[in-house]
Amino acid sequence: MRRLLHLNSVHKIFNEDTPDEKIGLSNINLKLEPGDFVTVIGSNGAGKSTLMNVISGVLFPDAGEIRIKGKNILSLPEHKRSRFIGRVFQDPMAGTAPTMTIEENLAMAYARNKRRTLRRGITKRSRDFFQEAVKSLHLGLENRFTAKVGLLSGGERQALSLLMATFTEPDILLLDEHTAALDPSRAALITKLTKQIVAEHGLTTMMVTHNMQQAIDLGNRLIMMDKGQIILDVDEVNKRSLTVESLLNEFQRIRGEKMASDRALLS
């Protein structure tokens, strides 16, 4: 069976040959099967966002190849990859257009894997579909369809972003700390929705988080990154017995040092 996502010796170095040289990714090899839900942890600067960015096309790797469903996607620019890659960003403001209405935002997301034309952006039929989709969030947004998204709270915007990123069933869903900017109760809500939506559509997902407990609770696989490398890859069976404690110990064993992330310890 063909791998859904396959990264083969991917390297990325920032500001190469300058004093600011930083390793973003070094020799990343990663294979995801369809339906995999991988949580990604690692200290600040470990390269988690860089990994997301080379997959989504925001950054181009210096070497290596990236395949989705067997097709090399490195020649595709970011906007063409977004036809089959869904994303939710850390910043709740980043995933929606604030001066446009809820239904207009949904319509733009819905058009992602079609060619955009001069047809009406919102039709009666699509509006009904959007209504149904938004109802599943249980936030009452279906009653505020013509409100501008800029008026929504951060949590509501992030829930909407999540819906917009997923309801066209992308091949792969990339979540980069998408609950990090929210207060605990909102974060819990978005986590719950993420679980629900990913399960419902059977989406192949990569989720970056600093919350170790969350990383353990969600998904069927966990990877830990450090200094641009994947240093630990836990499969479904072993993941069941993981604890925060054992993860930290594991890090110390591999690296011979304590994990340098206050945020990770806190959570």
Binding site: S82, A94, A97, M100, A109, A111, L118, R120, G121, A165
Partner: peptide, 22 residues
């Protein structure tokens, strides 16, 4: 209000967002 028009407005509003919707 067309599909292209919505994308055009989003380009002025939030480029990163509309790029993530192709």
């Amino acid at each position: 209000k067309t599909e292209i028009g919505l994308a055009l407005r989003a380009t002025g509003d939030n480029k990163r967002m509309i790029r993530s919707f192709s």
